[in-house]
Design a protein around this nucleic acid. Structure first.
Length: 220
DNA sequence: GCGACAG
DNA sequence: ATCTTGTCGC
């Protein structure tokens, strides 16, 4: 297994390949979601990739993969734990998504290389990071209405790492950042489009449900 | 040294 | 991620 310092070195090298501008086919027709399921008592991790019709939000394809956890949970080294089962699931897809929304951050990461960037660079596909809580960066108060956004910034450099996005009025926001081959504005637009009446994008919700199902089937 | 820390 | 019920508020 990779050591932590080797993982950090790999991030520093791969981050150079991230493309943070729109390089994808628009309008988006097939949009994918990725999520994993596990618990702290077992060494098993289940990953799921779902493909949705962007217009109807109907699930058109699902792929899952269960395997022993390849790496422990370490904040900042998240992708080394969650990416392997997701890549295995992704390889089973028949269709290629126009963009993939990940359950975790992209550039909004201490070394600017979160899960969404890692998967995007590894598969060379457009990816978006959409996390439920903050990992790094600071932000100002956010208006309570759905659609409100405020930048997530690095206080030291002023660099914009992502956008804090209110997908539902009066509900905790989500943290959107660039994964690969997409600009931040498009990333926010797609996350909002996939969250018309729910907090998390429909892609993430479906991926979560299928990952949980695969995990439950695996542990019996 | 102390606090923070995606899932 | 998970441990975990009822309860407050729109």
């Amino acid at each position: 297994m990779l050591t932590e310092s080797e993982a950090v070195a790999l991030q520093e090298a791969l981050r150079q390949r991230v493309v943070s501008e729109d390089v994808f086919t628009a309008p988006v027709r097939f949009i994918a979601g990725a999520d994993v399921e596990y618990d702290k008592h077992r060494d098993l991790i289940a990953g799921a990739i779902v493909l949705l019709d962007a217009k109807t939000k109907a699930v058109v394809e699902v792929a899952t993969h269960v395997m022993p956890a390849p790496f422990p949970y370490v904040p900042g080294l998240f992708s080394f734990r969650e990416m392997p089962p997701l890549l295995a699931a992704y390889r089973q897809l028949r269709q290629t998504p126009d963009v993939l929304i990940c359950d975790g951050h992209g550039l909004a990461h201490p070394r600017r290389f979160g899960l969404a960037c890692h998967i995007g660079v590894e598969l060379n596909i457009p990816t978006i990071g959409c996390g439920k809580t903050r990992l790094t960066g600071y932000y100002q108060d956010l208006a309570p209405e759905r659609g409100a956004t405020t930048p997530l910034t690095d206080e030291a450099t002023g660099e914009i790492l992502g956008q804090v996005v209110r997908t539902q009025t009066g509900i905790n926001p989500v943290f959107v950042s660039v994964g690969h081959r997409i600009g931040l504005a498009s990333a926010v637009e797609l996350v909002l489009a996939m969250s018309e009446s729910v907090r998390l994008p429909e892609t993430t919700r479906q991926a979560d449900a299928y990952a949980r199902q695969a995990w439950l089937a695996a542990i019996g």
